[in-house]
Design a protein around this nucleic acid. Structure first.
Lengths: 243, 243
DNA sequence: CAGTGGTCTAGACCACCCT
DNA sequence: GGGTGGTCTAGACCACTGG
């Protein structure tokens, strides 16, 4: 007979309170028993109680107010999390295949230079890709990043990894912020051709700009997704209501 | 002369390591000095060091591995946070004005019943709204929630609050999960009329379903936004890289 | 003032990982 | 085995809140 796993004391405190909150015994705004009280009730030290409470705070179940107490938090369901990792972009069950449409080093036009805060005519690398599932082409992807002299361009890396990965590998600077804009458009003639769709099909335009710690833009990416084959999904945050 | 605020010891530990990570002295994957080592180095107890490290873990700077150590985490910039609160939906500087287009109690059609997991012909409340900024109409919003017998319908609440708020007030059940789908469309003739736009203008369709703790759908909402006046913005998570 | 949470200690023992 | 983090204690003093 295997020994039972012994759950930590702080975990029991957190779990019990979590259940009370989910059952509605404790409603948003309600005060939680004081730390001293819980400490006596569970016969554990105050630090242990605090560890349990900090777990609940981390998953957004309670808010702590100095000098007053711990209170049940109102779930904030208006913030949503969107996962743009390449595996997650499309249905996980559907493998994506990627086709490189082109890799080139060119002078930045006004569009790219503005996005990347570069002078016009600075050299940049531009990568175009076609993403498909079994159903067929789904999205066209264009990526721009400043060209670094003497740095080899590995098409494999630059074409077949998620955009933030590309930035990290190529520029060797950690990207720390990602700004995304989502807007609707119609497929242009060129886009429609590449996506094997009719012109003027509704499409999603996802534009990303990645920044370094110091605020420097490191890269810019634009993805055009066929509206009939792709829907963006987001889920309320915090995702994990687990301890 | 005012007394200087004395920052906690654990805060200093966290701040120093955070700076090292941001400067690149510590790179993703690198091990952080052991807790015992930091404890000696800062001349504080191990629990205090641990409190500092837990702060860093909370903002995603480090990962802890039992029996091995603490390691600098790779920033995950592929998860983005989207804020759908009503004040945030459009440019904060632009006040939104809301016009109620209609509030009615009707029998659920197949569409609504499917989304809300109700039988067809169960009664639901349907609210239609028009959202405008100074520029003019921006979005049409339709909300459906199960009709509760004997529960008064307060048009003010149902029409002028963010959707999750509405659900909480009306059904008196906490909504705990929000699923959002984002897709592109073209304005239908009716939508174009209400939004004072040309037909077939590209538009964003934002569809939300709210759920209770037990998984019951509590409400469904669909918002159609003029593409020329509205762009959805999202930002990488975790947002707060602050201690 | 009494009650709350915030910080901190100096130990202890355990579970895990590696060699 | 020795090193790491994980849990836990029984105190202590501080800072903030409210009556």
């Amino acid at each position: 007979m295997k020994e039972q796993f012994q759950e930590p004391a702080y975990y029991r405190v957190a779990k019990d309170l979590k259940k009370d909150i989910e059952k509605g015994n404790l409603k948003p705004g309600d005060a939680i028993p004081s730390e001293a009280q819980l400490s006596r009730q569970y016969n554990v030290s105050r630090m242990t109680v605090r560890q349990g409470l900090s777990q609940l705070a981390n998953i957004g179940y309670i808010k702590t107010v100095q000098g007053k107490g711990n209170f049940v938090a109102r779930p904030s369901v208006e913030k949503l999390v969107l996962n743009l990792s390449e595996e997650n972009l499309f249905n996980a069950s559907d493998k994506i295949s990627i086709k490189l449409l082109g890799v080139e080093v060119i002078k930045a036009g006004t569009q790219e230079s503005r996005k990347l805060a570069l002078d016009v005519s600075t050299k940049i690398i531009k990568v175009a890709r076609l993403l498909s599932t079994r159903e067929g082409p789904v999205a066209i992807d264009t990526r721009c990043l400043p060209y670094l002299k003497g740095k080899p361009i590995l098409e494999k890396e630059i074409g077949y990894a998620a955009f933030p990965e590309v930035i990290n590998h190529y520029s060797e600077i950690l990207s720390i912020r990602n700004e995304l804009s989502i807007s609707p458009t119609l497929l242009s003639e060129a886009e429609a051709n590449q996506l094997k769709a009719e012109k003027h099909l509704p499409a999603l335009c996802l534009e990303q700009v990645l920044f370094a710690y110091n605020g420097t833009p490191l890269g810019w990416s634009k993805m055009i997704c066929r509206g009939d084959r792709y829907t963006l999904q987001a889920d309320s945050y915090p995702h994990s209501r687990e301890l």
